[in-house]
């Protein structure tokens, strides 16, 4: 009996149909549950890959980080990070590089995103290609390009000395400068794209209203546009900072062994120590830092968007 017929007969046989309706509802419920069960199964292959290859090994690293050199439970892997000068300087370098790269990305990315916002869509889309092409290009290819450009007799040094700006070639690669330049180049699109998206969402009438009320363009920018673009700016900046913390390839190639960051140390620890404890502890710290900063940015952005 269909639901409609049951309902229609309701007037004549109330008691029987309530039971029938309930039975019907239960059948629908069972059906829905079965369907949800079937649907859930569709996500299991992907889930299995992520759980077996990511979640489980991270859990295992976490437990290994508490195993000392003698095989027993100990905090020595963590105390080493805090007390050993070598580790402390690796963390200092990592944070320094991440902070400098983030600030440079902000300074370079903000004007680009702003100009893309004020230009007509057709131009903006064409210019966006200049952001997308590097974004799509392998980081290894770009690191190689910088290695060539920045070397002693590379294009940058040649140009500078041709212009008479320098007498001797500047040491631009295999040091902190090289790592910073290479990383800014890689991270800049990651800042410009979310920032552009959030600027695009700002109502242009607000700036016109500010001008109408007698505000100068500069004043209007700082009082109206900049505050409204802050959530996108913060989200982008934190993303850049967090991604920098885990960088491995670029510092390894452009740093020439002189710039040691956490990821390189993890890689070395795996081959350096007979046990996995030291590498595992570093991995856990890196993971906690990454998660912590991402959570922080999420909270800040949420607060901003709620404040509106």
């Amino acid at each position: 009996m269909s639901l409609l017929q049951t309902a229609a007969s309701d007037y004549r046989q109330p008691a029987a149909t309530v039971a029938a309706l309930r039975e019907n509802a239960q059948a629908l419920d069972r059906d829905r549950q079965r369907e949800n069960g079937q649907l859930l199964r569709l996500s299991l292959p992907a889930l299995a890959i992520v759980v077996i290859l990511m979640v489980a090994p991270i859990g295992w690293l976490f437990s290994l980080s508490f195993v000392g050199a003698d095989g027993g439970f100990s905090f020595e892997n963590y105390t080493r990070i805090v007390t050993d000068g070598a580790y402390v300087s690796i963390f200092a370098t990592t944070f320094q590089v991440a902070a400098v790269v983030t600030v440079l990305c902000l300074l370079l990315g903000y004007p680009v995103a702003y100009v893309l916002t004020i230009l007509p869509d057709r131009f903006a889309q064409a210019l966006m290609l200049a952001v997308l092409v590097p974004f799509w290009t392998s980081l290894l290819v770009r690191t190689y390009a910088w290695l060539v450009l920045l070397q002693r007799r590379g294009v940058v040094n040649d140009t500078l000395s041709m212009l008479g700006l320098i007498e001797r070639p500047l040491p631009l690669v295999h040091n902190m400068a090289g790592v910073t330049i290479g990383m800014v180049h890689i991270m800049l699109p990651f800042l410009i794209m979310p920032l552009y998206a959030s600027m695009k969402a700002i109502d242009g009438n607000l700036m016109r209203a500010a001008a109408n009320l007698g505000s100068s363009p500069v004043h209007a920018f700082f009082r109206v546009f900049l505050p409204l673009s802050l959530p996108g700016l913060i989200a982008g900046a934190v993303m850049v900072f967090v991604m920098c913390l885990g960088f491995y390839i670029t510092p390894a190639l452009l740093g020439g062994g002189k710039v040691q960051m956490i990821a390189q140390r993890i890689e070395q620890s795996v081959s350096l120590f007979p046990t996995w404890g030291p590498a595992a502890a570093l991995a856990v710290v890196l993971l906690v830092l990454t998660g912590g900063f991402l959570l922080l940015s999420w909270l800040i952005v949420r607060r901003f968007s709620r404040g509106e």
């Binding site: 859930l40 992907a46 889930l47 990511m54 991270i58 890689e267 993971l287």
Partner: peptide
């Protein structure tokens, strides 16, 4: 699907994007 844990499963599947590659690498 309308099952519970949907959000958790989505977050788990998206997590490899947020986790530093070096951690995925040593785990693998």
């Amino acid at each position: 699907g309308k099952f519970a844990l949907r959000g958790t499963i989505y977050a788990t599947l998206a997590a490899p994007l947020a986790i530093p590659a070096i951690l995925l690498a040593i785990g693998l």
